[in-house]
């Protein structure tokens, strides 16, 4: 027995137009994608930020991916050795007290030039310093819950001499 669909109009359910709120919803959902846009390809030649209003800052500070890379390098370069959870005074990067100013260029300079013999200006590539600065400026916004989750995520990541990954 072969069933043949009787001729006639297509059921209205199949032709119904998408509701009017679908397009704005789609835009809102996809809009989130750009907040972690990645720049794939060769590293652009990088220089230090020229001021706290350098036009390149939003590409790092407002990009979740760049901030997260900064977090990863924060562990790899051993920053946590001195600026760990629970550090006090100037070493605490989670409070909103910045000794030398809270602008992007101020903190960039604090990391690159104010670490004495660690000489991060020479040993850390400029683009990584941009990412580290974006991450450090993001830190005061991390609530306890987020810090705990990050710590757990990065538990297995290599941390300089204090490697705690799979043994």
């Amino acid at each position: 027995m072969i069933f043949v669909r009787p001729p006639g109009p297509v059921s209205p359910a199949l032709t119904r137009r998408a509701p009017c709120w679908a397009a704005p919803l789609l835009v809102a959902v996809l809009g989130g994608c750009s907040s972690e846009a990645r720049q794939l390809g060769p590293t652009a030649p990088q220089t230090r930020p020229i001021s706290n209003a350098d036009p390149r800052i939003p590409a790092y500070q407002a990009n979740v991916y760049q901030v997260a890379q900064g977090g990863r390098y924060f562990g790899w370069y051993g920053c946590g050795g001195c600026h760990a959870e629970g550090a006090t005074g100037v070493l605490n990067l989670g409070d909103t007290q910045w000794k030398h100013g809270d602008g992007f260029a101020d903190l960039f300079t604090a990391i690159a030039d104010r670490h004495g013999r660690l000489a991060y200006d020479r040993r850390v590539p400029v683009e990584v310093l941009w990412q580290l600065t974006a991450f450090v400026r993001d830190l005061p916004a991390h609530k306890a819950e987020k810090r705990m989750r990050t710590a757990r995520d990065q538990k297995a990541e290599p941390q300089g001499a204090t490697w705690s990954g799979p043994q």
Binding site: R38, L40, Y73, P125, V126, E127, V128
Partner: peptide, 15 residues
């Protein structure tokens, strides 16, 4: 240029 050969790798380009 590690980022040109393997875009996104965690090895940064060191000037």
């Amino acid at each position: 240029q590690p980022q040109a050969l393997k875009p996104g790798t965690s090895m940064p380009a060191v000037p």
